[in-house]
Design a protein around this nucleic acid. Structure first.
Length: 228
DNA sequence: GCGACAG
DNA sequence: ATCTTGTCGC
């Protein structure tokens, strides 16, 4: 098992940017070695204007895309939302849910970007480094880089470019919907991330891991901290 | 200097 | 991110 990177999380935004520059050198982008048996979806939910977070990690069978197990955790967070520093706000809670899983997944799809980030340190990449496991990012909006809209047909893609470098793909998961933005996080490469995202598409716009994690974390929030 | 800006 | 049913359009 690859080494998980350990570091303090109680940082100021300025210190967080410095930390990202240090962590960047530890990113490993390579083809997945082993075939995927289980894939997880990771997501955070909270009530508007509240700092009480709810995290969920949902593990699915890669072949059937059916839920095998899920873990949850809730706590109050203090790091502010700053575009580019999302991982410092959401990962601590996600890690506490992750620790409760009986069996870790082979790869995890995180809500947000992987290397399609100004410093290549999106939440999916950071989560991969923190757990020492393969990850990819699936975001609904672009954060950095440029792309030309994919063709209208479902399954079409176009590269997300930062200068000359390809940092991810815009994927039209369904016809007549805005594209999703897929990028590798850690211990995975560009093509592998795209192949996995496509494999996980079902009847909806969002890939099953992300869609189910979002649905289940919202159910968890509503039956627990109903209010704040 | 100005606009953009994941969740 | 979150509040929310039906409704208009491709």
């Amino acid at each position: 098992m690859p080494s998980a990177v350990e570091h303090p999380w109680d940082l100021s935004p300025t210190e967080a940017v410095k930390m990202q520059r240090e962590l960047r050198d530890r990113i490993v982008l390579q083809p997945l070695e082993m075939p995927v048996r289980r894939i997880a979806g990771a997501d955070i939910s909270f009530n508007m204007y509240s700092d009480v977070f709810f995290a969920a990690i949902v593990v699915l069978d890669y072949t059937t895309l059916e839920v095998i197990e899920s873990a949850y955790f809730t706590e109050t967070v203090s790091f502010p939302y700053v575009p580019g520093l999302l991982s410092f706000r959401e990962i601590p809670t996600l890690l506490k849910a992750w620790q409760q899983l009986k069996e870790k997944p082979d790869v995890t799809m995180v809500d947000g970007h992987g290397i399609a980030h100004p410093r290549r340190m999106g939440i999916a990449t950071h989560f991969g480094l923190a757990t020492g496991s393969p990850t990819l990012g699936c975001a609904k909006k672009i954060l950095s880089g440029h792309f030309t809209p994919p063709a209208q047909e479902a399954g079409s893609t176009s590269p997300i470019l930062d200068k000359e470098e390809v940092i991810g793909y815009a994927l039209r998961s369904k016809a007549r919907t805005n594209p999703l933005f897929i990028s590798p996080g850690h211990l995975l490469d560009l093509e592998g991330a795209l192949a996995i995202a496509r494999h996980c598409l079902g009847k909806y716009k969002l890939p099953e891991p992300t869609r189910l994690a979002h649905q289940m974390v919202n159910a968890y929030r509503r039956e627990h901290g109903a209010n704040d």
